[in-house]
Amino acid sequence: MSDTATVAPSVRKAGRWVFVSGIVLLCVWTLLPIYLLMVNALSTPEEVNGFPKSFIPSFDLSSLRFFLEFEGVLNALWNSIRVAVVTMILSIGFGAPAGYALSRFDFPGKEVFRFLVVMTRAFPLPLLALPLAVMFLRVGLDDSVLGLALVHTTLALPFAVLITYSLFSGIPFELEEAAFTLGCTRFQAFRKVVLPLAAPGIAASAVFAFVISWNEVFAAAVLTIKNRTLTAFLMQSLDWSPLHLKFAGAAALVLPALIFIFAVRKYLFAMWGIANR
């Protein structure tokens, strides 16, 4: 490197030091708040409400127990899981075939469809909950798992389409053609060649769909009354809930998301980044 060669070693060393400490600082900035939340979640209610706070948890589960035993929480957790699973199934079930079609065929109307998908990005989608609340009331989907999952699917579907599109585009069509010449029908070629190759990526995009639904607050709060999801429950209880309930709840929200993101870390950049273009 020409510019480093002309710089004195001491300056270079200092630059290196700034660089490393910058990275450490950024890591602390990202991780410290999560750590602090976990400290709260793993302390007793008295400690959470007391002052001053210890920066090391007492590893007491009573806050979490209080949270889990609180009326409606288990139900809300269960609803969150159900909504997220239905969202995952719907968005992959509808999105993957569309992604496959976009990656493999040229046909009139392709651009119109792509435009429709990309356009959803320019709209504040949680607002859909407003008109859909009325529509669901008419068809009996109000305050239901399926109703909310449908709204969450509008959030997750465009991503599922674009992610699977880039995923399938990464699998050469030549492989499928080879399967055709070796005796496969179109469907067999998909099942025996494309699916095994795309499966990990599809699983990763399914996880993204799950996380999108799991984290969504506005539509959940608008559309559910009795069958609250965890986010809706926490949101609606903000006014009166004690601190230890809030923080244990936040920890319960964060943990699965962290695990899922860790599970799909390999795909984070390859898919999410490129599918977003």
């Binding site: 050469p172 030549e174 492989l175 053609e177 080879a178 399967a179 055709f180 010449t181 070796l182 005796g183 496969c184 029908t185 060649v193």
Partner: peptide, 17 residues
């Protein structure tokens, strides 16, 4: 369809699964 033609094919990029 290809599978009923009694052919086999070698592809430019080999298409080895």
């Amino acid at each position: 369809p290809p599978k009923e033609r009694g052919i086999a094919m070698v592809f430019q990029n080999y298409a080895v699964f």
